[in-house]
């Protein structure tokens, strides 16, 4: 395994600008390692520092402190090589509205030194479903088409690492879905992607790992493990007849964390359904319960997210008091 992106203590402070404003700590000593082929999600609310992080890693702005290696190049001394070897979808698509799609793409293909310019431009126009609109001015495009064109632009030079800054943030649900499907396709092709988003479902669906960020990382892990870490797992057990003693029986088991009856079924929180379920069923059956069925309940990532964010707010309040 090789890490395509390594970040050590990356920090960005924006100086105060004008009267009455003060210095902003946008990104606070972030550590991160992303492996080749991974889709890493930077999940956080507005102002969390996602864009600032991406701008630093694309050598657009320089960090106040910390170091980073991107595709094996060190941020700072190798900025030129970094710019040439990453692709970036910036927060706003930033297309030349008075130029058509082909011209927009060929221009960037030339800047990136792409060999087969026409071939690459064709490939991505087709891949993103913009082929029929290729001679239309970018200014006449819908938001979704613009976003797709900007994504094509980020991929033209086949960068091993791609940064996508809120790719679906300003799109209607339909366009957002098309873009998400495309990102999923990219993921399938083994492209390494850093995806900024404040959309939980998007992060859940697309990312191998998620870093919940608010200036610094509040937690990093795969979506499934983030859930388990905070909530354990839950299963719903539906029985022929619900009796209180069954719940008590289950509470006595070592791996069970919590049992509650709801809607004629038992909701059981336990450590790991895969290994715990057989025991659970055996105990119930031995006690004479008729088990109709057993299903795993997934905690929405939302609860994890708001829990983590909530904790953060409490921390801040406590710090303020101290």
């Amino acid at each position: 395994m090789c890490s395509i992106l390594r970040v050590e203590g990356l920090t960005k402070r924006f100086p105060a600008f004008g009267k009455g404003s003060h210095e902003t700590l946008a990104v606070d000593a972030i550590h991160l390692e992303v492996q080749a082929g991974e889709v890493f999600g930077l999940l956080g609310p507005n102002g969390a520092g996602k864009t600032t992080m991406v701008r630093m890693l694309c050598a657009l702005i320089s960090p106040t402190a910390g170091r980073a290696w991107i595709n094996g190049f060190e941020l700072g001394p190798d900025n030129d090589s970094i710019r040439a070897s990453v692709g970036v979808l910036t927060e706003s698509p930033g297309l030349y509205r008075k130029l058509d799609a082909v011209t927009n793409l060929s221009f960037f293909a030339k800047l990136y030194g792409v060999r087969d310019i026409a071939g690459q431009v064709d490939k991505y126009l087709r891949m993103l479903g913009l082929w029929d609109a290729r001679y239309q001015l970018a200014g006449s495009f819908s938001k979704g088409m613009r976003q797709k064109l900007a994504i094509a632009r980020a991929l033209l030079h086949e960068p091993p690492l791609v940064f996508l800054d809120e790719p679906t943030a300003s799109l209607d649900p339909e366009a957002a879905r098309v873009v998400r499907d495309f990102i999923e396709e990219l993921r399938g092709r083994g492209r390494t992607i850093v995806l900024c988003t404040h959309n939980l479902d998007e992060a859940d669906r697309l990312c191998d790992r998620i870093g919940v960020i608010k200036q610094k990382f509040l937690c990093i892990d795969s979506p499934a493990r983030l859930r388990r870490q905070l909530y354990g797992s839950a299963v719903r057990v539906r029985l022929e007849k619900l009796a209180p003693e069954y719940a008590n029986l289950l509470r006595g088991l070592p791996f069970v964390k919590q049992v509650e009856a709801s809607d004629g079924a038992l909701i059981v929180r336990l450590e790991d359904p895969a290994t715990n379920n057989p025991t659970l069923v055996r105990v119930l059956v031995t006690a004479g319960a008729g088990v109709r069925y057993l299903e795993e309940l997934s905690v929405p990532l939302e609860s994890v997210y708001f829990d983590v964010m909530g904790q953060q707010d409490q921390d801040v309040r406590q710090e303020a008091k101290a």
Partner: peptide, 14 residues
Amino acid sequence: ETRTLEPLLASPVS
């Protein structure tokens, strides 16, 4: 103003 500067500066153009 048209926000095209950021992608341009992100490219390897000196």
